[in-house]
């Protein structure tokens, strides 16, 4: 880990979800809602770290489709254990982003 002093220089954003159905739905929604962007999913057994560079959107409707049941955006909090970047919470989507791009 010789790069530890440089590891903070990144623009990764996205949710860290507790494992379960919602985490899997969010990982799928991240792919669909951010076309053309590379989404990485790190599985730490207890949680999934779902990330991309710069900005990530998660649409309520996409998560609802992935879950196959009604979903309101603030239910995300039930399993949203942490996140990289800043969060904007809206009725129909959440957005992760940075104010300062490194």
């Amino acid at each position: 880990m010789s790069d530890i002093s440089q590891s903070h220089i990144n623009n990764k954003v996205g949710p860290v979800m507790r494992q379960g159905d919602l985490a899997n739905a969010v990982a799928e929604a991240a792919e669909i809602d951010n076309p053309g962007k590379a989404i990485t999913v790190e599985d730490k057994l207890a949680y999934l770290r779902i990330q991309t560079d710069g900005e990530m959107f998660l649409q309520r409707q996409t998560i609802e489709e992935m879950l196959g049941r009604p979903f309101s955006m603030n239910e995300l909090e039930v399993d949203l254990a942490s996140f990289a970047g800043r969060i904007d919470t809206k009725a129909d989507y959440v957005r992760f982003h940075h104010a300062l791009v490194l």
Binding site: M1, I4, S7, H8, I9, N10, K12, R49, S82, A84, G85, R86, H98, A99, L100, L102
Partner: peptide, 15 residues
């Protein structure tokens, strides 16, 4: 490295 350097130190700079 995962939580404090890559994520938290980054957030500190962002603010």
């Amino acid at each position: 490295l995962e939580w404090i350097v890559s994520q938290f130190e980054r957030a500190l700079l962002d603010l």
